[in-house]
Design a protein around this nucleic acid. Structure first.
Lengths: 223, 223
DNA sequence: GTGTAGTCTAAGAATTCGCTAAGAATTTCC
DNA sequence: GGAAATTCTTAGCGAATTCTTAGACTACAC
């Protein structure tokens, strides 16, 4: 009875075809979250809890290498594998120097990708990664929010992601554009945030999320 | 195909000739599941319910010894026998050190293999391993689901396997591809899972299995 | 107080996802 | 061999989720 939760994998890949394809490939072995560009990916990688990262090298806006460097310099040691169209040894060395744990050229074999992922995650036990939010505890995988008193609330995917991001950085104020960038599609109206904050407050507790007038939203810091 | 009165044996052997051959040999005495590589084998060993494991040492991707170590470090104590082309004492010791219960060199005698399997499973008995699911108790052998109040529901083989897998890992969320891989044939439509979940809910209780929208299914610890 | 920018909320359109029925294919049992 | 049970596929419908919009409401500056 190994209670091995599905490892959480963040896939940062802008290609509209390749992204979902890889996500589907790994869906059986990992809980896969797909980020469509580097900035969104960076936010998720910084704020979420991940067991392994798969990052496309040729990302628009912020390329894969810069992303890995940014993560490492922020103290994020999550194992990372870089995907690339380029396959020279020099490229490979660059990738590993940037702080990646492994490097694979496209096109790649599905089995090899899984094997390499297993290799770089071997020594990282998957953490249950429960988030404490006041008197509540969020399980981002099953998307259940449990209170100390036995009752629980089921959240939707977006509700859970938003809450996890806010709760993962207590007392930090997130602006609406920032949240849209991290969790929604580019071009989505900033009003989505208001809507989901509203959903959460209605489902859980009015005081769950604090509004910072003119700035954004915040969790924690009840002063 | 599966006669679930028989002990459940997981055979992990990549050789396209030897694998089916051994499976055939043991088919009369065990319900044999053949996994063609270490990765698949590890997955099955972790998620399924097995009475004994037979593992080839020279597996691609993840070799037999590493596989056994991975299992043991995950708390899986299912008796395991290692098959190998190498027969030196040193090799044998390595295998046992890794956590295997026995070790056999190829070519081997069918009778001896069966005898050794009987030996290492002797002390484990055929664990009925009743599974508690809410107010119900599942006996995977007789495939009967009994309630506290004397009534019972007869399940089919697949229904029972699915329920046992979910119930054996309470609160873990299984994706459809994951369940298909563990319980069905590769290439089967993910929709089978929906169908069997539907069967179980209709036979037993609507609330037996929880849907995690967009992710998969879960047997929970809601109270 | 009053105006303005910012926030909350409801309602609904669009989309995705899951449930279910029906039946074909396969296996089991007599 | 035939009937019954089981396994698995497909497709339509309904439900859940996502996101937009617009008007009511609120906080803050002056």
């Amino acid at each position: 009875m190994p209670n091995s939760e599905l490892p959480r994998l963040l896939l940062i890949e802008d290609d509209a075809v390749l992204g979902p394809l890889i996500a589907e490939l790994l869906a059986g072995d990992y809980y896969v979250q797909l980020a469509a560009d580097g900035q969104k990916g960076l936010h998720l990688a910084l704020t979420g809890t991940w067991d392994v990262l798969v990052i496309d090298r040729g990302l628009p806006v912020m390329d894969g290498l810069a992303l890995v460097r940014a993560l490492r310099s922020n103290g994020v040691g999550t194992p990372a594998l870089i995907l690339t169209a380029l396959g020279s040894t020099a490229e490979k060395i660059d990738g590993l120097d940037a702080g990646a744990n492994d490097y694979m050229s496209k096109p790649f074999d599905a089995g090899e990708l899984k094997a390499r992922l297993r290799a770089i995650t071997r020594n990282f036990g998957s953490t249950p990664a429960l988030l404490e939010i006041g008197t509540w505890v969020l399980d981002p995988v099953s998307r259940k929010l449990r209170s100390q008193y036995g009752n629980h609330v089921d959240l939707t995917a977006k509700e859970s992601e938003l809450l996890a991001l806010l709760a993962g950085n207590p007392s930090r104020v997130f602006t609406r554009p920032e949240l849209v960038e991290a969790l929604f599609h580019p071009g989505d109206s900033p009003g989505v945030i208001d809507t989901y904050v509203h959903y959460l407050r209605r489902k859980v507790d009015k005081a769950l999320i604090r509004t910072v007038h003119g700035l954004g939203y915040q969790i924690g810091d009840d002063s």
